[in-house]
Each structure stands twice: as structure tokens, then as C-alpha cells.
Write a protein that binds this DNA or RNA. Structure first.
Ligand code: FES
Ligand code: FES
Lengths: 144, 144
DNA sequence: AGAATAAAGGATGCAATTATCCTTTTTTAA
DNA sequence: TTAAAAAAGGATAATTGCATCCTTTATTCT
């Protein structure tokens, strides 16, 4: 469904959303630990998210990553767009070069209906929404 | 969503279903051409499908691949199980080691509901159903 | 029987994704 | 003003999925 990078990205932003509400910062190591991801690889992904203004970072002692809670909420789709690229949802389920109504594959109708709904969901859900599940103890970012 | 192998497999079986209704056979080259896939790679996939009795093959002159139209219809999920493995639908959307209700990720509920529906669809749709779309000219197996 | 045809199978190559390493830059604090 | 902390960035490595090649085996036809 999503690339590994994208999975880590979503989890990282959820974690940051929860842990940096108070203005504190988290290091790469702390984030990687929490979301059970390889540290240097996670670093790359965080860099990308910073470059696209989805999260913020500060260098030096006491620095780290955080999300600015005065700015507007982050829609899950924004992260997907940045990491996996827009068009992630416009691909044919059977791998035709392009998915379109004019020349669709045999599963296009059913398939496109599902992926449209899923996309709609990710366009309306925010990271802040997902964070609630973690805070309430009903959802988790790792399982071992 | 599916692996490339699986996409080729589904398209190949649909094509065979249509073109070998009359008892004729198709060579690897003919199939690869029709579904726009790399020939040797397609050969491997077809071999796997034969080993799992989803399609049949005959060696030697006049030989090739075909599907036996006296046997029962092929559900799309059967191909997915054989190529991508069962459990293809049991993976966590955010990459947790396992997707379960006890310790779900934050998107589990919405996500699992969609993938359950999609799985249900693929469990009930047959290749023969999908072939109808091609025969009626409403759907296609390649687009260039 | 021999030649040609076509799939089966094993070994290998290639490329993208995933992951790691190392150096540089920025910032803080002693 | 030096040392330490921490992210940024560039280069490199490992893994996996995708793809190809080549030899073998089975079948058909002459
Ligand atoms: S053409 Fe295949 S999903 Fe749209
Ligand atoms: S735990 Fe993530 S989808 Fe079920």
C-alpha cells in the first residue's frame, strides 16, 4: 500500500504530534525507538518532512524535531504526497500504464471505487485525529 | 497493492480464459504480447500457475498454455494467494509487525474495513467475470 | 529415429527500495 | 572560544523484487 518510508513518516509525525505538544523536541534516536524504525533511514525521512514544512527541526544541544502546534493540522494525505508522491492513488490496480475511464482494466470500476474512498479518508483525516487513538491507549505505533 | 508478478498473473489468466475457450493454446510470447509483460518473467509466473493447477500447459509443437473450461471457475483471490501468498491482505497499513485488534495501529479500523471489503470482492469475483469486460470491449489488458 | 517446437527449471543480472556510514554545519553551553 | 550536541547532507552498502539467459525435458511431426 504505502512505501516503508511513508509508513515511518506517518508514524513519526503522529509521535511528534503527541510528544511535542508542550514545545519540547525529540531526537532522531527517540523517534526511531518509539516507532520501531531504523535510525539513519528515519533521519532521511525526517529531513524530507522538514524540507516540506510538515515538521520543524532545530540543530544543536536541546534541539531535535517537533511540530509547531500553532500552525494548522496536518492531513495524512500531505505526508503521502511528499513521501510517495502525488499520483500514489492514481495507479491502475492491474498495472496498466495509466488508469483512466476511457480504457480501463477489468477491475477498474470496483477497484477505483475503493481507492477513491480510501483517498477521501486520508484527505480528511489529520495526524491530530490519529494521535487521539494513541493518547487514549486504543492504538499503538509499534508492537513487540 | 499487488506485486507486478500478481498483476501479470491475473491478466494472463484472464487472457487465457478468453483465448483458449475453444481448446486452443497460447505460447508465452503470445501471452506476454497481449498483456504487455516481459516474456521470460511471464514464463516464470505461468509455470507457478501451472504448478498450482490454476492453468494448464502442454509442451511440444502445438503446445502452450490454456485453461480447462470444464473445470470450475477461478476466483481472483486464488491467483493472489498463489503468487503474493495468503496473508497478502492481513498486513498492517502502517507496517506494524502484525495487524490485530488487540494492539492496532491508528488507522486500523478504517483501513481494515476497506481491505476486508476488497478481499471479499476478490473472493467472489472470478476470472470469468472479469473476462466478460474484455469480451464486451469495455475493459482492456494493456493500454498503448 | 530425428528434427523442430515449446514449456520447465536453474543460474544469473539489474534496479529500486531500504538501510547505513561519515563528514559538515549549526547551535548551545561551559 | 572551545567542546559537545544534534540535524543536514553526501556517498555507499544491502536487500528485495523484477527481469533475463541458457540448458534440459517433453511432445509432435516428418
Ligand atoms: S485502469 Fe485499472 S484500476 Fe483503473
Ligand atoms: S494494525 Fe495497522 S492496519 Fe491493523
Amino acid at each position: 500500500m504505502f512505501s516503508k518510508s511513508c509508513e515511518y513518516a506517518i508514524k513519526a509525525v503522529i509521535h511528534l504530534c503527541i510528544e511535542t505538544k508542550d514545545g519540547s523536541r525529540l531526537s532522531i534516536a527517540e523517534i526511531a525507538e518509539a516507532i520501531d524504525s531504523p535510525e539513519p533511514f528515519t533521519a532521511k525521512i525526517l529531513q524530507t518532512l522538514v524540507r516540506h514544512d510538515i515538521i520543524s527541526s532545530a540543530k544543536g544541544p536541546g534541539g531535535g524535531f517537533y511540530i509547531d502546534h500553532h500552525s494548522k493540522p496536518v492531513f495524512v494525505i500531505e505526508i503521502i504526497d511528499v513521501i510517495d508522491g502525488k499520483h500514489a492513488f492514481e495507479r491502475c490496480g492491474l498495472g496498466l500504464k495509466e488508469c483512466n475511464e476511457k480504457r480501463p482494466c477489468p477491475i477498474h470500476n470496483e477497484f477505483a471505487s475503493y481507492s477513491r474512498k480510501l483517498k477521501r479518508l486520508l484527505e480528511t483525516k489529520t495526524i491530530q485525529d490519529l494521535a487521539k487513538g494513541i493518547i487514549s491507549g486504543k492504538a499503538f505505533l509499534s508492537n513487540t
